[in-house]
């Protein structure tokens, strides 16, 4: 039944843990008291699914809707359309009171380790709080054991040194470890990590990515890794999905997409990112100009057409559907649609 309803989006798998089908999440904005309410179409008909233990990188520029999509998959927002399945259960319209089981199995890691954890609580309580909320681990002694186990898992050794520390006594990298610890202490099946390393220095960034990967593999967690940085995604994703102006532009296995990107926007993103190479200074980059469109009034047709070097007539008139370009790679671009 459900399998047939998602058949219009063949890049989804009915066996996946998380399935978002034709998701819509619009923010309403009212410019003045009597003016008409308008909508920012942050997520506009996006379908994505993530398998058990799979890592999907969600790539997009600021304002592309990647964070909104991540939060939508966690049912932190009400949907304006589409359906959301988790482990075979439809949670699209479930009430918050019916979602306790889901809240326990799906967690989030935020970008800013300085504001994501409460500065007035010590590390022990920060890690223990999810256990208390979900009534996991019986007594205090058992909970402390779980906190210590988690501190070991996030490589804060010896754990006793950190239990009674406060966030301000930790470095940015250590705080992000604590945020990861808080997310994994309940043994979730699904984690949305929203730019978890973008505020960290290069070396700490690799340290945290390495830890995330280790945790992900050890606990077989499905990850949505949200980032603007396609190059860090290389070290932490099986598949990638490219989002542009609230729409999915391309989705496929990481290596195949980066090696031979199908969508002109993906091509532009890849071209824009330099590798460390001293000869870069001798030539200019071939990059597209312009800026992403407003999501209140997105352009007709393909949303990338005003910036696209290959824009054709049809791109200005009609929205391109997602089609399979190559094995497992889907892109929404008229260049790949044979009429």
């Amino acid at each position: 039944m459900y399998a047939s309803s998602i058949a219009d989006s063949p890049w989804l798998s009915p066996n996946h843990l998380v399935i978002g089908h034709r998701l819509k999440m619009w923010y309403s904005v009212q410019a003045g008291l009597f003016s008409k309410t308008r909508y920012v179409r942050a997520v506009d008909d996006v379908s994505i699914s993530i398998g058990k233990g799979e890592t999907v990188a969600m790539i997009g520029e600021s304002g592309s809707g990647k964070s909104s999509l991540g939060r939508t998959l966690l049912r932190l927002y009400k949907l304006n359309g589409g359906s959301l399945m988790f482990d075979g259960k439809d949670i699209t319209k479930a009430k918050e009171s019916e979602l306790a089981w889901f809240r326990r199995r799906a967690q989030m890691i935020f970008q800013d380790p300085f504001s994501a954890i409460n500065p007035f609580h010590n590390i022990k309580f920060i890690l223990e709080e999810p256990l208390i909320i979900h009534g996991v681990g019986g007594g205090a002694a058992e909970r402390e054991e779980m906190v210590i186990r988690t501190l070991n898992e996030i490589k804060m050794n010896p754990p006793e040194d950190y239990l009674y520390k406060y966030p301000h006594m930790l470095s940015g990298g250590q705080r992000q470890r604590v945020a990861i610890g808080r997310a994994i202490i309940l043994r979730p099946d699904f984690i949305v990590a929203d730019e978890p390393v973008s505020m960290l220095d290069a070396s700490v960034r690799v340290e945290i990515l390495t830890l995330l990967k280790e945790v992900q593999q050890k606990m077989n967690i499905a990850f949505l890794y949200i980032t603007h940085d396609i190059s860090t995604a290389k070290y932490f994703s099986d598949r990638i999905a490219i989002l542009y102006a609230g729409k999915l532009a391309e989705v496929g296995p990481y290596r195949d997409v980066v090696k031979d990107p199908a969508h002109p926007y993906t091509q532009a993103l890849i071209e824009a990112i330099p590798d460390p190479d001293p000869s870069n200074r001798f030539h200019d980059k071939k990059v597209v100009g312009g800026e992403p469109p407003s999501l209140i009034n997105p352009p007709r047709g393909c949303r990338f057409h005003p910036r696209c070097p290959f824009a054709m007539d049809i791109c200005r008139r009609e929205e391109p559907p997602m089609v399979e370009v190559k094995n497992g790679i889907y892109a929404a671009c008229w260049l790949h649609i044979k009429k």
Partner: peptide
Amino acid sequence: GLMGSVPTLRGEKKLTFM
């Protein structure tokens, strides 16, 4: 160490950290 932690999009490289 710093160079070792810079991700590259094109070449193959194992990232390291300090």
